[in-house]
Simulated assay, not measured.
Amino acid sequence: MKTIVITNNKGGTGKTTVATQLAYSLMLTGYSTVAVDLDSQCNLTTALPRQRVAGNALDLVEAGEPPEFTAAPGELVLIEGHADMPVVRDDAILRNTAGALQALKGADFCIIDTPPTYSATVYGAMLAADYILAPIELKRFSVDGIKTVLKALVEVREINPDVKFLGLLPSRFDAVKEMERESLRVMAAEFPQLIIPHAIRNRTAYEKAEAEGMPVSEVSTRSGREAAAEFQAFFEWFLENVEAGT
């Protein structure tokens, strides 16, 4: 199973949107997929209301044991979030989270949504990850914020040297605004090897898809069609990089 952690230490970067639509895209492509909600806000759980629940994230991090399940090809199952998920730095929680996620089986892919803080659960998830992906919102662009993400990656690689960083994904991007276009130019100059060559724009279709618990490709509006096309382009890039192991 390939484990992908979606993380950023800032809120409002579109992590749940990316995690949700990535999980749906894998499902629709025929992969068996498990989505894990480590955020106490439970937004991923809310966005996947029709999926079979395979377990609870609080049990996973407290007991350190993964739930047992088998997802069929083309099936998406959920390890749902919990409002009492710990957000502290605690070695036991870190070990439990990493151990349980490393032992998790039953699907081709595991997509993990995380809270906007580098707590023990997030570090534990990153220690268990094969790949890390960091959505970033350009209207709140901050070099210091991105450096915090990269600092956490360096720390994780001291213990998990095989983890691969897929990159920084511009999210909720508004190409009409000069400030955001300039932020993207600055960011590309500062981190030329880390910027994913796709962007998830700020479209109402993503909000509708999350609110109604469905893939954005099922939103039958112009915004839905545009969102589906842009996310599919990113998804093809994602599969190429993950399957190639880069």
Results as ranks from 00 to 15, higher is better:
residue 132 I to R: 03
residue 79 I to A: 14
residue 196 I to C: 13
residue 115 P to W: 10
residue 61 V to F: 02
residue 71 A to K: 09
residue 28 L to P: 03
residue 55 G to F: 00
residue 54 A to G: 13
residue 14 G to E: 08
residue 32 S to W: 06
residue 238 F to D: 00
residue 82 H to T: 03
residue 102 Q to N: 12
residue 94 L to V: 11
residue 154 V to L: 14
residue 123 Y to E: 07
residue 228 A to P: 05
residue 38 L to C: 04
residue 23 A to M: 09
residue 96 N to Y: 08
residue 16 T to P: 11
residue 189 A to M: 04
residue 158 E to S: 10
residue 121 T to S: 12
residue 109 F to C: 03
residue 35 A to Y: 03
residue 27 M to L: 07
residue 121 T to I: 15
residue 161 P to T: 05
residue 163 V to R: 10
residue 59 D to F: 06
residue 12 G to M: 01
residue 45 T to N: 06
residue 100 A to R: 05
residue 12 G to Q: 07
residue 201 R to N: 10
residue 5 V to S: 05
residue 203 R to G: 14
residue 110 C to T: 15
residue 24 Y to S: 08
residue 51 Q to S: 13
residue 35 A to N: 11
residue 241 N to Y: 00
residue 124 G to P: 09
residue 138 L to E: 13
residue 235 F to I: 00
residue 33 T to L: 11
residue 86 P to C: 07
residue 194 L to F: 04
residue 217 S to I: 01
residue 207 E to N: 13
residue 123 Y to D: 02
residue 86 P to D: 03
residue 165 F to D: 04
residue 62 E to N: 15
residue 63 A to D: 15
residue 187 M to H: 01
residue 180 E to L: 00
residue 103 A to E: 02
residue 156 V to K: 13
residue 235 F to R: 01
residue 65 E to R: 14
residue 144 D to M: 14
residue 11 G to Y: 08
residue 170 P to I: 02
residue 119 S to D: 01
residue 151 K to P: 01
residue 48 L to K: 14
residue 25 S to I: 05
residue 152 A to Y: 07
residue 205 A to N: 11
residue 141 F to D: 12
residue 183 S to R: 02
residue 97 T to M: 10
residue 133 L to Y: 03
residue 27 M to D: 06
residue 237 W to A: 01
residue 117 T to P: 10
residue 215 P to F: 06
residue 228 A to S: 11
residue 211 A to M: 14
residue 201 R to W: 11
residue 31 Y to N: 09
residue 54 A to T: 05
residue 123 Y to K: 15
residue 63 A to L: 15
residue 137 E to Q: 13
residue 139 K to L: 15
residue 155 E to N: 14
residue 95 R to G: 10
residue 77 V to C: 15
residue 188 A to G: 07
residue 28 L to R: 04
residue 88 V to T: 15
residue 100 A to D: 03
residue 14 G to Q: 04
residue 99 G to D: 00
residue 94 L to I: 06
residue 224 G to Q: 00
residue 3 T to R: 10
residue 149 V to Q: 08
residue 207 E to C: 14
residue 146 I to K: 01
residue 242 V to F: 00
residue 5 V to Q: 03
residue 163 V to E: 07
residue 212 E to V: 11
residue 84 D to T: 13
residue 186 V to K: 04
residue 220 S to V: 14
residue 193 Q to I: 00
residue 2 K to F: 11
residue 10 K to N: 05
residue 41 Q to N: 11
residue 218 E to I: 03
residue 134 A to E: 01
residue 64 G to W: 04
residue 241 N to Q: 09
residue 201 R to H: 13
residue 66 P to L: 05
residue 170 P to C: 06
residue 118 Y to F: 15
residue 112 I to P: 08
residue 114 T to R: 11
residue 92 A to Y: 08
residue 143 V to H: 12
residue 108 D to L: 06
residue 206 Y to D: 13
residue 230 E to F: 05
residue 77 V to S: 09
residue 35 A to K: 04
residue 119 S to T: 09
residue 120 A to L: 02
residue 10 K to E: 04
residue 239 L to R: 06
residue 55 G to C: 03
residue 33 T to Q: 14
residue 192 P to K: 03
residue 90 D to H: 15
residue 81 G to A: 06
residue 85 M to L: 15
residue 52 R to V: 10
residue 82 H to A: 08
residue 158 E to N: 09
residue 173 F to L: 01
residue 169 L to D: 07
residue 43 N to M: 05
residue 76 L to F: 01
residue 115 P to C: 14
residue 53 V to R: 07
residue 22 L to E: 12
residue 4 I to P: 08
residue 49 P to H: 06
